[in-house]
């Protein structure tokens, strides 16, 4: 298992390289550069040359990329072009924990609610409760966050005065983050609920469950002992994948709620061609995603010892 873990971590290196390579060249190919924004409509080509040289943007692209990788290996992700020369590592250190916290809370809520909803729906398959649960779950994802969020803000903050409209005062003040977390959690909740329902239905019809039922075990015991755990396995993957969605989902949600995470800045960074920040965020999200999925795969082996680690690690 340890060697498998090592292999897996080693495999993360080419993945991260690939991600950074793609990001770099997408950024490089995107029309317009941070220099354009710095110059505004005073577009004297001579000044452009000077600035490009000063920021190292006149080098051949491969050299630029090589420099980036070299510096990144030394823990230096460069400085933001558009945000007051801030070192990207510092931005990440300050702002990523907030995004990660929102994502964790969301995944927690999504997992709990999603699992329960999926289970209830499966056990009451095709009955009213099934339809009701899945209906609510589906309605909650049929609208994009940028519709749901302002509607909720107007309702809960302006009309009912229950929650502050926007802001972030730290983890200790849930009234500021509960709305964003709920908005973020909607889609993963629905995904998890659907997969759980689907998976439960499969398991409920397995021979061993029928055998257990036939043996006269109490239904509650059958569900607890034989069904939930087995049904949970495929759902684990969905949970892991949802984490990626949450990190990028925060792009929009953080913006709407004025939360100083890494998400809002990412979109701005693309618009302002802030290459170092784009690179940093891409790498960070990729790395987080890899780690989360590694954890998920580890959990597989814990939940179900029959799964040999190697098979899921391939």
């Amino acid at each position: 298992m340890l060697s498998a873990l090592r292999t897996r971590l080693l495999l993360a290196i080419p993945t991260l390289l690939l991600v950074s390579f793609i990001t770099f060249f997408l950024g490089y190919l995107a029309p317009g550069s941070p220099i354009d924004l710095m110059m505004g409509q005073h577009g004297d080509p001579a000044i452009r040359k000077q600035l490009e040289h000063a920021y190292g943007l006149d080098l051949p692209p491969l050299t630029q990329y090589g420099r980036f990788v070299w510096n990144a290996l030394h823990g230096d992700l460069g400085k933001s072009f558009a945000m007051a020369n801030r070192p990207v590592t510092q931005m990440i250190a300050e702002q990523f924990p907030i995004t990660a916290f929102l994502a964790l809370m969301s995944i927690l809520i999504a997992t709990v609610v999603g699992l329960v909803a999926g289970m209830v729906a499966a056990l009451r398959h095709n009955r009213l409760l099934d339809r009701a649960t899945m209906g609510v779950v589906l309605v909650s994802v049929s609208l994009p966050p940028f519709v749901v969020a302002p509607v909720l803000t107007v309702l809960l903050s302006l009309k009912l005065d229950w929650l502050p409209a926007s802001g972030w005062e730290g983890v200790a003040y849930p009234e500021y983050w509960i709305l964003p977390v709920l908005v973020l959690a909607a889609r993963p909740t629905a995904l998890i609920a659907r997969f759980m329902r689907s998976s439960m239905l499969d398991v409920l019809r397995q021979d061993y469950v029928r055998t257990a039922n036939a043996k006269g075990l109490s239904p509650a015991r059958v569900i607890a002992k034989h069904t939930v755990k087995n049904a949970f396995l495929p759902v684990l993957t969905v949970i892991g994948n949802s984490f990626g969605y949450l990190l990028t989902g925060s792009f929009v949600v953080e913006n709407i709620f004025g939360i100083p995470g890494i998400g809002y800045q990412s979109v701005q960074s693309i618009l302002s061609r802030d290459y170092p920040v784009i690179q940093g965020v891409a790498l960070l999200v990729a790395f987080t995603f890899i780690v989360v999925n590694l954890v998920v795969d580890m959990l597989y082996t814990v939940v179900d010892p029959r799964v040999r680690y190697e098979s899921s690690a391939a």
Partner: peptide, 23 residues
């Protein structure tokens, strides 16, 4: 519609036939 960076670049290069902008 385009990103401001691209709009500025093409404006300064003089390649856009027609654009709505502010001075």
């Amino acid at each position: 519609q385009m990103d401001f960076a691209q709009l500025l670049r093409e404006r300064n290069q003089g390649t856009m036939p027609c654009y709505h902008m502010r001075w």
